[in-house]
Write a protein that binds this DNA or RNA. Structure first.
Length: 574
DNA sequence: GCCGTTTTCGGCCCGACTGTTTTCAGTCG
């Protein structure tokens, strides 16, 4: 018997769907996808259903029939699915890898494999550089160029993973190690501690009286697949998620210095070292020392900064972008704190591409201590997810009113995520927009317009008096899609002139606005909001990534509208 | 392969864009 989570079953079904699509099957892929989505949203465990009710029970899951139920049964009983194994023999390609290249889909993978024996991205790049792709039927110079561009973009992101996929795991490992015998302290350092949007590896520091025990625990974590180096005070392992994790064991007297040093950034540290030098001091990973070698600080970070004549600087600011000067002049921003949001202004439900109902999302938000949550499903031009038209929006409004009457302790706001069309108009009538509490507008189509055209398009939406917020203003997907061309300075100016809020979308793959743009907006006094963009109950937790991102952009509580009480917010929006 | 029946097989979210074609296939959202 295999232990499998619903998530793993869903991934398996998606994988089969992709291979079926590759093999030219038209409708089965849709079936497997629908079943996968259904299992993702399921509250009961598939394992548990299988244990108590076998295949018959599985068939009661929506969109799971006999065929798919048997595949799940096979996976649980023997750990693999014959059909998928056979598909992989027939098409020995690294499908998921190839599909990450933009403009490459299953059909293209098939042609590339059959005609040029391309099995992975490396083969693909080689063949494209040799000019072999352009001579394939149905391909040309442009397709070849596009593929190479896609590979370039992929390479540029390679090895760096979104904060959101790493931070939870890092915290989990840290918390496990804290309970190991002899351990006095474990902290996360590096770009992860600074909350950078992508991270290259996971760095931990620890104090322990029993180094051997801690090292052993670290390398035997269930997340590890390989041990690179193992010394008394330093170990590196490879994690399942294709990332390295490093653990250093530090003596207590220099722990603060090490924490400061390994948190970085390099630029921040170099600037601090220059500052130390000016004061006739020496700063390194062991502490702050006087000329004659006397230890001045080292046990904690505050001490290091104090010794240099500075207040402690929050890790999110340590990029040498003016924070040291600000610290010296005692004008560091009072950064927004975790836990200070009172609401969430962008969430989707099962009325479109979300997984949960309005009521479930409301309850989940209440659980997290929020006071209000806006339901902002997609509107009609996003047909793919069943975007809502005017009458559906009205119907949803009535459902929201019903849920509001039922639930105490949370207010659900009527909203929408309207699409900004090519000409800058919106895909929902002004009358419909006027009935909503929160209108977010966003670009979802026609991504590759020239910069000035895209900027004009977005500014027109900003000027629409019904639009409260511009959602994910640059449209980027980290490691997958670059931002569209837009002049952010002009957008920020327009937002300022029209009192429009710009969003910090906390969805880990978006983090949009990015830190430098947040700082530009803050400097201009433009109001921001931090939204989860949750597509399920659990994803409302993403808000914390948005707070980290806001901190990296020097934002204070006052800059973020959803720190307001509901009354204040509604007044602000009206 | 699943669903919903006009219960035993037909229909399956859709629209725009792109690059290749000269009427369309594949990708993407």
């Amino acid at each position: 018997m295999e232990q499998v989570t619903n998530e793993e079953v869903a991934v398996l079904l998606y994988e089969i769907a992709f291979y079926l699509e590759l093999s030219g099957d038209t409708f089965r892929p849709r079936s497997f996808e629908r079943a996968a989505r259904s299992i993702e949203t399921l509250s009961e465990s598939v394992m548990e259903i299988h244990r108590s009710q076998h295949i018959e029970g599985l068939m009661k899951i929506p969109f799971v029939g006999e065929g798919i139920a048997k595949k799940i049964d096979e996976k649980i009983r023997i750990g693999r699915v014959t059909q998928l194994e056979e598909l992989k023999v027939r098409f020995p390609v690294r499908l998921s890898e190839l599909l990450t290249v933009e403009s490459v889909g299953p059909k293209t993978v098939r042609v590339l494999y059959e005609q040029l024996d391309i099995k992975n991205v490396e083969d693909l790049e080689k063949r494209a550089r040799e000019g072999k792709i352009r001579s394939l039927p149905g391909f040309g110079n442009k397709s070849e160029e596009k593929i190479l561009k896609g590979i370039e973009f992929l390479k540029a992101c390679k090895g760096r993973q979104p904060l959101g996929t790493v931070l939870g795991l890092a915290q989990h490992i840290r918390d496990q190690l804290r309970f190991i015998e002899g351990v006095k302290s474990v902290v996360i350092t590096g770009s992860l501690a600074r909350g950078k949007e992508t991270v290259e590896d996971l760095d931990l520091l620890a104090i322990t009286s029993l180094p051997d025990v801690l090292v052993k625990a670290f390398i035997s974590t269930s997340e590890a697949i390989h041990v690179y180096q193992k010394q008394n005070t330093r170990v590196s392992i490879r994690l399942k998620i294709e990332l390295n994790a490093n653990l250093r064991i530090i003596p207590e007297e220099s722990f603060g210095a090490a924490q400061q040093y390994f948190t970085g950034s390099k630029e921040h540290n170099l600037a601090l070292q220059r500052l130390a030098q000016d004061k006739g001091l020496k700063l390194n990973e062991y502490g702050v020392f006087s000329k004659d070698g006397q230890t001045i600080a080292g046990t904690n970070e505050e001490g290091i900064y104090t010794a240099l004549g500075l207040p402690w600087i929050p890790p999110e600011l340590r990029e040498n972008l003016g924070e040291i000067e600000a610290a010296r002049e005692e004008r560091l921003p009072d950064l927004i704190k975790h836990g200070s949001l009172r609401g969430d202004l962008q969430t989707q439900t099962n009325w479109t591409d979300g997984k949960n109902s309005i009521e479930e999302m409301g309850k989940a938000a209440r659980e997290l201590g929020l006071q209000y949550i806006a339901i902002t499903d997609h509107t009609r031009s996003l047909a793919m997810v069943g975007g809502l038209d005017e009458s559906k929006i009205q119907e949803q409004g009535r459902e929201i009113e019903r849920v509001n009457r039922k639930l105490d302790g949370i207010q659900i706001l009527k909203g929408a995520e309207v699409n900004i069309l090519k000409d800058g108009s919106l895909d929902l009538s002004d009358d419909a927009l006027a009935d909503l509490d929160v209108v977010g507008a966003a670009v979802h189509t026609n991504f590759n317009m020239p910069q000035d055209e895209m900027t004009r398009r977005m500014i027109q939406a900003i000027r629409n008096p019904h639009v409260d917020i511009i959602f994910h203003p640059t449209g980027r997907i980290i490691n997958r899609r670059p931002p569209y061309a837009v002049n952010m300075k002009k957008i920020i100016e327009a937002a300022k002139d029209n009192g429009t809020i710009l969003e910090i979308d906390a969805y880990p793959e978006r983090l949009d606005l990015k830190d430098e743009h947040i700082r530009m907006a803050v400097d201009e006094g433009v109001k921001l909001c931090i939204d989860s963009d949750a597509h399920s109950m659990a994803q409302i937790n993403y808000l914390s990534y948005g707070i980290t991102q806001a901190r990296r952009g020097w934002a204070s509580r006052n800059d973020i509208v959803n720190t307001m009480s509901l009354d204040e917010l509604l007044k602000h929006l009206s």
